[in-house]
Write a protein that binds this DNA or RNA. Structure first.
Length: 396
DNA sequence: TCTGGGGTCCTAGGACCC
DNA sequence: TCTGGGGTCCTAGGACCC
């Protein structure tokens, strides 16, 4: 999806379209916005139906932001100022103070996410969920999926999504997921790009290695230290050289990726492995000095994870914590318990034991609670009752 | 000017078992 | 006196992605 969060906001606030704008800095609820409108613009009685009438100068600006948030989405008009995803808002404010700042409304983004995915599945059922704004689609067996190299189907999907949601997307069509992902970036926004194996040298090899999904900042820095900047330069290295310097698994994968090889299937179903909640504090907290505040946050995180597990019908047996110190160093501790659980008090209790195993002499900026080794609660109930069945006398 | 929140997967060492 | 070769599970950290 193109600038997904910003685009969703434009559906409600078309007056902001085309302006430099960033999403980030906490959660927002529409009723709070309306309450603020009625306080600050009392000349009119505002309701949820009036959002498109809110004057542009009502919206908060990046220059007034104070806090620890990051940008989750920057509008295309904001990007020339050098700001983009994951950048701290305080830094972004220096580069583009006049940008409008909207806190994120994840409930609404999730609603739109479900909507566009439903449209796709109605057309091409073999779809892999890759997060809130991205999917892989297998065109292979979709009627018409091969016409014009996939362009006809891609256009149909774009048009159908736009009709259903008012949102635009960019589609890359290629023989595998690796190349399709890269292709999808070629023509943003609202574009289609088709990459064949034969285009590897002309379209893919000139790109920086970082464009490969799976080469992050660390691997890129290491490649650059070896004088490898482009995917073509990576492809020119011997497989054995890459294995020698990057390990058997990652080295071989780098070699395959640089040659456009990727056999991964489009996976339509998967089960979650873990669920977690974490929070960065407004100010750094000390385990001793801010014990009460920290304890309350800890309990809340445990309750939130438990609620997530219960709502989605999972139980887990590996319970852990995550700390981030002021120097950004992370520590994790976890414990696997005998019985699966989704109980807030049990999670809080076991997480509390984990907390005792980590150094707490320095200030913290983040605390998290995680539950892993998940299974469906219903499946566990089934296993339990069949265990109980075994206790029954054989002849009854 | 500091750097969110929610995930997945991989690696590596140690315990433990057969 | 010198100690194999699997395998699984657990834990901690780290890279990477949306």
């Amino acid at each position: 999806m193109d600038a997904f969060y910003a685009s969703v906001e434009w559906l409600r606030y078309p007056q902001l379209k085309g302006l430099p704008m960033v999403i980030g800095g906490g959660r927002r609820r529409e009723d709070e916005l309306i309450a603020r409108l009625n306080t600050e613009r009392p000349e009119r009685s505002w309701t949820a139906a009036d959002l498109a009438d809110i004057p542009v100068d009502f919206f908060p600006l990046l220059r007034d932001y104070v806090g620890r948030g990051v940008i989750t989405t920057a509008s295309y008009a904001a990007r020339p100022f050098g700001i983009g995803s994951a950048m701290g808002l305080m830094k972004a404010a220096r580069l583009c103070p006049q940008a409008i700042l909207l806190p994120a409304d994840f409930d609404e983004y999730r609603r739109c996410s479900r909507a566009f995915k439903q449209v796709i599945q109605g057309i091409a059922p073999v779809m892999e969920d890759r997060g809130i704004d991205e999917v892989y689609i297998d065109f292979t067996h979709v009627p018409g999926g091969q016409r014009e190299g996939g362009r006809v189907l891609a256009r149909l999907i774009q048009k159908s999504i736009f009709q259903a949601t008012g949102l635009t997307c960019s589609i890359g069509v290629a023989p595998n997921k690796l190349l399709a992902k890269m292709a999808s970036e070629f023509n943003k926004p609202n574009g289609i790009s088709i990459v064949h194996e034969a285009n590897l040298q002309t379209l893919i090899w000139p790109l920086p290695c970082r464009k490969i999904n799976g080469i992050g900042p660390k691997a890129d820095a290491k490649l650059q230290a070896h004088g490898i900047t482009t995917i073509g330069e990576l492809a020119a290295r011997e497989r054995s050289w890459l294995v020698e310097h990057f390990g058997r698994s990652y080295g071989a994968w780098l070699h395959d990726a640089a040659h456009g090889r990727d056999e991964r299937p489009v996976v339509t179903e998967s089960e979650p492995v873990s669920m977690s909640r974490e929070t960065t504090f407004d100010r750094d907290l000390h385990a001793v000095h801010d014990k009460a505040e920290l304890g309350a946050i800890f309990t809340r995180l445990a309750e939130q994870v438990a609620a997530d597990l219960q709502r989605k019908g999972y139980v887990g047996k590996t319970i852990g914590i995550k700390l981030r110190y002021t120097d950004f160093k992370i520590a994790t501790r976890d414990t696997t318990v005998a019985e699966h659980t989704n109980d807030a008090r049990r999670i809080r209790q076991v997480a509390g034991q984990c907390l005792k195993r980590v150094p707490l002499d320095r200030r913290l900026r983040l605390l998290g609670v995680r539950v892993g080794s998940l299974v469906k609660a219903a499946e566990l109930a089934g296993a339990k009752s069949s265990e109980e069945d075994l206790d029954l006398p054989l002849f009854q």
